[in-house]
Amino acid sequence: MINELIYDFAIWLDDSAWSTLLHESYYMYNWVESIHVLTLVVCLGMLFMIDLRMLGYALPNVPASNIARRLNMPMLIGFAIMFITGILLFYAVPVRTSQSVWFRVKMILLVACAVNAYLFHRRMNESVSSWDHDTKAPDRIRFGAIFSLGFWSLVVICGRLVAYDWFDCEYTDSDNFSQLLSGCIAGQERF
């Protein structure tokens, strides 16, 4: 049921002229893709700095709240650009992407990242004044930082794997496991 809905939605996107134009244009598509990947440096670079500070590895002598507050803005700007370019990339190749198991796992991981980020911020705002100058943050915050590093690393790995076609509906006709994994539709004609 949900697979059918996703498929129909993807087909609807795929039918729009701009999707095809973006998909087929060499420079535009590659630029959007490059911006998506290069902004990773801004967004995840800042995020890793914050997380590593909480773990006591980066900039241990600068107050934790100072790091988090200052690097938050560049991180969010980077994230916004990644988000927009990410949507464009999906829009350019909707059917194949929506039926990629890596893409689906990536979306779930992104939700996990968001929940983790929310909890991390809340815990931090509650307690930061008591440990701001400590080299390492308290356990609860440190776990949040480790989850953040782990989830985002998996997001990047899954994102990279979207490009590979091992489980694509188009090429796994007789392989039931792949078909199930990718949420293929029986008899689908577009990929």
């Binding site: 134009l21 973006l22 087929e24 244009s25 060499y26 420079y27 535009m28």
Partner: peptide
């Protein structure tokens, strides 16, 4: 060189197309 390639392919600069095809 990008502008030259596009110019060569289409006679004008079009980003929404593939100059390699």
């Amino acid at each position: 060189s990008m502008l030259e390639l596009l110019e060569l392919a289409y006679g004008s600069v079009k980003f929404f197309n593939n100059p390699l095809v």
